[in-house]
Design a protein around this nucleic acid. Sequence first.
DNA 1: TTTGTTATGTTATAATATAACATTATGACT
DNA 2: AGTCATAATGTTATATTATAACATAACAAA
Lengths: 165, 165
Amino acid sequence: MSFTDAENTTFDAFPKPTHDHSQCVKDALAKALAICQGRGARFTELRKQVFELVCASHKPIGAYDILDTFQKRGRKTAPPTIYRALDFLLEQGLIHRIASLNAYIGCDFPQEPHRGQFVICKLCGEATELVSHTIEKCIASAAEKLDFQVQSRVIEILGICSACQ
Amino acid sequence: MSFTDAENTTFDAFPKPTHDHSQCVKDALAKALAICQGRGARFTELRKQVFELVCASHKPIGAYDILDTFQKRGRKTAPPTIYRALDFLLEQGLIHRIASLNAYIGCDFPQEPHRGQFVICKLCGEATELVSHTIEKCIASAAEKLDFQVQSRVIEILGICSACQ
DNA sequence: TTTGTTATGTTATAATATAACATTATGACT
DNA sequence: AGTCATAATGTTATATTATAACATAACAAA
Ligand SMILES: [Zn+2]
Ligand SMILES: [Zn+2]
Ligand SMILES: [Zn+2]
Ligand SMILES: [Zn+2]
């Protein structure tokens, strides 16, 4: 369920504790699989498992948390294995990296390529994704004035979510 | 020299290679000193030296680059010394941290508290600071709709600057 | 000059990420 | 099927960034 405000920003509400999260993960997996198949990209078992762990919550998760889970499951795994899977998922636009947290989160809009804009609660850790065309326009305008070619951007808003106030 | 565009974004041009940078550093030091004095904060010799190194260029600099310089100068220094000085400068708003680069840069507008927005060239490393009220408004609007209390934000735009194209 | 506070020094280690090279799986082509 | 090139994963070691914990030194107020 997405909303659009007066500033033409589209956003999801923060994930409600009541939402059917297992369905949420199922849907994300199905989308990811379809996207990869459409591109001839290989959504291998390893990549799928890493993706499932990233999508297991709506909180950004660290690479070493994923690693720990693999190891606790008895799978002997080293950091490069996890980082390579994360790199693949990032390239395919299935997840985003949260630079301010050194962590990774599933993308809410994986079909269309876009730069994520994130709102992250410092207390519960939950995060949600924005797509603000006005922010994009602002950035484009300033970039044009500076004669700057934008390649990527990091937009992360940190604070306290409604539920935690 | 600052500009303001149609989207109400204030920004400096990228620092010109021809600008009088030693004056630039002198000014920054004088401002920093005045700000700290006004607040009763102690701008110690160590903090001053770290600040000078951060301001030595308009490229974000890593904590370990600063550490290396201290050590090359014959001063036996360990990481916490540098990080504590950086933390002080961040608290006083004299520098900003660039999360996407794990690096630090001098603030162009230290007098007034604000959240930095940065445009960073991936080739030459030069960076400049924006203050876009429209971006602020967008974020505030989305935050309000989400009933989210904004505490801090990370806005970093990466690409190729005019001189490097 | 004692005393509490702030700043810095010192040692060790945590947390995040990548380099380099070996091995295995996959898919295309014969 | 068998060969081959490529892509994916495994493995070991190490680089990079940051902090914990405790000791000492500098400072400033009483
Ligand atoms: Zn969910
Ligand atoms: Zn996304
Ligand atoms: Zn300068
Ligand atoms: Zn600033």
